[in-house]
Design a protein around this nucleic acid. Structure first.
Lengths: 413, 413
DNA sequence: CATATTTGTTGTCTGTGGCAACATATAGTC
DNA sequence: GACTATATGTTGCCACAGACAACAAATATG
């Protein structure tokens, strides 16, 4: 009864040809995706954005409504002369569960199709959780969320953010050093447990995805993303509007970019790379703090200047600049987004960072790029994770089938 | 009368929606592109590959024929039972001119729509040509080729390979150090001269393009490409089936990947990068050769081992390995293609290269990748360049208009 | 209250691909 | 060599998505 992994509808097309059904699916998908990204749009705006005919939009929207994927709000006036247009919004009776697995906690959120968080559950774990523990915790939290949501809610699936290398085709966690996981069949086990399609991806890439679709990377086609988190420096890239994932899904881990030769012996980490040379703990050790979240750390460092702290920051900023300039040369992006701990480094010495970057980046590519620092909120990451199960739905709204909700309800009993 | 740059039909779509015409264009494009890539295909194969109906294929093919873009060869038998299928081939009465500008020569070739070279003209230049010189030489060679081709030939346009950074939107050569060009309006000037749509791109990227569409990178979705040429180390990447180009087109120059810190002062080159640390001349200097092409150099080095040569090779192989491993970690590709001088390095010590790569690449990504060395032939590069003008034709065969051929004929008079 | 403007709705039309039946051409078998 | 099985091209008809035009509805402006 269970299928191993949901067929990712509409992702890989069978044939190269296109027929009428494809057109319909494409247009439904386009509209629903627009609504999902923007939250709500009037029909007239949809007409403009898609350059489809008014009557076609009308038809498509009513199909989305009958599919229960969109609802119409009463007309909104005040937009100038003429008949006011009907507002269409994605239905928040369709949700996805987003999961973030961190070293010390597991969070699960219900995210509505409009891209907004509906509710959140978080459970702290004493240590990095084992795979089995994670499965149980996730199942419980989802079960709680589900009963809170009540009936009449349809669930697209579950998306999980893991700090490690994940094989995309089956959601196998190949290696997650900070969790001490190897070859963990998380997707499969979770799917057996909760009977929902489960997708897994690297957390940094999901952070980028959220940033790209809803945050400061909106509407950009080429983005480089670097994030400093408890589990080291990670990264991702948007290339030509699409995420860089590589053949199996290990690609785009830009924290692994090399900036110095490093020892040529394979250690546990990756010597000579950005991830190796920028360690949050190094700065933390230079303070008298034992543990601190990013805002606390930033405040402390600002209030307690010392030459040791200064040295650490300078060295890390320089390393970051070398990495970023190399990435700018490789990707010629519109933006470099720094998140988490790296945005702290940016806040501490943006000027030096900029200077150092311009020393070794191509001037033409440099002209195109904006360096953007964003604080990382765990909810951003969760929103990115929810995009995973929403993907198949958004790609083919007409043929997507929600998985058996009755057997789901049984879990919470 | 002249338009500045041909509108790249079908590249950037106006609206997100899709209607009937889009379907037709898409299917025509799909079929013509398949024919272009494969050289010739039977109708039945087209049916299978596109998963369109036989009758539809029949209709589409006859439209391509009436557009003069495809011809039908007599049926070919011997393929098992059943009525033999009609072979369809791209019409070689449609050609593109491909230009390669090198330090010491300019080559122009006529490439047929089937992707095969029809004829080639090469003119040596004493030094790196100035822009004006290049324009004149190219015009003359094209004019010669055109008169050889005779009447009844339609020309899709001109594609130029330049060793430097090229802005894609208008073909402005921003910087080509080895030619001593800055902000050279090559496309515009050439277009005024010969009244054909002119496209320009970085030569390494075009080498990759040829390799990806016709060579050892066929059917791969993620490829990393590095080429050693007279004008230093260049590179390119295919990400998710599409070329990595960045916002303005400077992206993908993988020769600029950093492998050591290098001096932090901006010199003329890019210290610490692959392009900086792998210099063909360094090996050449270690020999008694004054000048040599790649095969000659390889033979010499094999026949005259010396400790100095050995040192140079080892250092360069190690540098290459560091660069490649970093790229493997970033891109998780199916193949790393080494071309030109780099394929010599590979030939000289493939084992050490492999070993060194596996020291610093992620094991999971390493499992996916093949290291492939190809000799670089200038014709490969030209075939890549021809893809530029073929692009708009292949993307929208139904609406592509060939530019006024009468004024063209006037040139050769 | 009249007019201009914009948008939603409805019915009709166009054109593209699907489909089924038939025609055609080969290989294999007796 | 005739017959059968198989595969492909051809033809006429159909289904259906989106375009279009005419009309209705709802607002702003004077």
């Amino acid at each position: 009864m269970l299928e191993n992994i949901p067929s990712d509808v509409g992702r890989a097309e069978q044939g190269l040809g296109r027929n009428r059904d494809h057109v319909r699916q494409h247009n439904l998908s386009t509209i629903l995706t627009l609504l999902h990204r923007e939250g709500a749009l009037s029909r007239s705006v949809l007409t403009q954005r898609t350059s489809l005919n008014r009557s076609t939009i009308s038809d498509l929207v009513s199909e989305l409504e009958s599919l229960g994927l969109a609802t119409e709000a009463p007309t909104v006036s005040g937009g100038g002369a003429g008949r006011p247009s009907i507002l269409v919004r994605p239905s928040d009776s369709v949700v996805a569960f987003a999961v973030a697995i961190d070293i010390d906690a597991i969070s699960v959120a219900a995210i509505g199709l409009s891209g907004h968080k509906i509710s959140l559950k978080k459970r702290r774990t004493p240590d990095a959780p084992a795979v089995g523990t994670a499965v149980v915790v996730i199942r419980d939290l989802i079960s709680q969320l589900k009963s809170e949501l009540g009936a009449g809610i349809r669930i697209a699936g579950v998306g999980v953010a893991v700090p490690g290398q994940v094989r995309q085709e089956d959601g196998l966690v190949r290696q997650a050093d900070f969790l001490n996981w190897r070859e963990a069949h998380l997707a499969e086990r979770l799917e057996n447990e909760i009977n929902l399609p489960v997708f897994i991806d690297n957390d940094a890439r999901l952070g980028l995805r959220a940033e790209h679709e809803f945050g400061s990377g909106r509407d950009l086609t080429d983005v480089v993303y670097l994030i400093g988190r408890s589990a080291g420096v990670g990264g991702g890239a948007i290339v030509g509007g699409r995420p860089l994932s590589g053949t199996s899904g290990y690609g785009g881990d830009l924290g692994l970019i090399r900036i110095s030769e490093g020892p040529l012996i394979q250690l546990s980490g990756h010597p000579g790379t950005l991830a190796d040379l920028i360690q949050r703990d190094e700065l933390l050790d230079a303070t008298s703090l034992s543990d601190a979240d990013d805002p606390t750390l930033l405040d402390y460092v600002r209030d307690h200047p010392s030459s040791r702290i200064r040295r650490v920051i300078t060295a890390q900023v320089d390393a970051l600049a070398l990495g970023i300039s190399s990435l700018i040369n490789l990707f010629n992006p519109q933006a470099v987004i720094l998140a988490g701990y790296l945005s702290i480094l940016h806040a501490l010495d943006a000027e030096r960072l900029r200077e150092r970057i311009s020393l070794s980046a191509l001037s033409h590519s440099l002209d195109d790029v904006h360096i953007i620092a964003v604080p990382v909120s765990s909810s951003r990451l969760l929103i990115g994770a929810a995009e995973l199960p929403f993907g198949p739905l958004l790609n083919a709204p007409g043929v997507f089938t929600f998985r058996n909700p009755t057997s789901l309800r049984a879990i919470s009993d």
